[in-house]
Amino acid sequence: MQDHEQHVSDEELLLAADGETKVLAQRVQAHLEACARCRTRAAEMESILIDLAQTERSSLDAELPPVAGARAMLRVRMAELSIDRPGFFSWGRISGGLLPGVLGAATLAAVIVLVGVMVVRHFTATGASLLLSPDYGVLPNHMFTPGAARQASLAEVCTLSHEEVVTKVSPIERQKVFAEYGIPSAQSDRYEVDYLITPGLGGDDDIRNLWPEPYNAEMWNAHRKDVLEERLHEMVCSHHLDLSVAQEAIATNWIAAYEKYVPATPPQDRDAKLTFQRRS
């Protein structure tokens, strides 16, 4: 009974995973680090929720008509709405009803863009758990994967070729990683077990440096991480960045590191460069 009281309730696990109250999240995090049972439970809940979302999508998405028609319809209706209601906009009166439909549509486009930006900001600002977004799982759980580096000198890192340092992750190690993250074996083909700190930057062949990276991430996928790795390698070997700083940056939050170190070129250019430089 007392033992039961010490565990975290399902509600608390869910709320903490959603970042609800810092205090609770910290308490739950501390408990999870010590309690395998609650870790398993948390993974179980998360996994069933993801499965459910995917099930809903796979059973419904085929029925949904393309978005373009609906978008065009909405534009027409919004334009109509502004014609129907002259003076609907506060500045509508000033313009004396001059082409209200056209102006309305223009404002509307601005509003939609503005709202879109606000919503995106809101997501980023609240650090919305990427749960269930197409980019869910693109950052490793630091509890399981803090990152680990081997004793490697700068000279070693900069002279050895990629092929010389990368060792293939063994099936046993893969299984360990999936077990740790509570990923059922049936879903394991959705993930690549990847090094957090790449061996090319001195990353170690250690379970603390391995995590299941989802294949289907739209934005922050393995290709993008490769770009970051090459960039950091280049900076380290041209003495523009300390090896330890590069390792720390990629281990802490590789997406933030990407934003910080990869020059902001348009995505097409990056992709073109990527294809060009892609290691065999």
């Binding site: 809903e56 999508r57 419904l60 998405d61 029925e63 949904l64 978005v67 609906a70 978008r71 909405l74 939609i112 709202v115 879109g116 919503v119």
Partner: peptide
Amino acid sequence: MFDQYRDPLLRYSVSF
């Protein structure tokens, strides 16, 4: 925003 939420909202309705 419409493009982002149209499918989620439509799925929500249809699933009921």
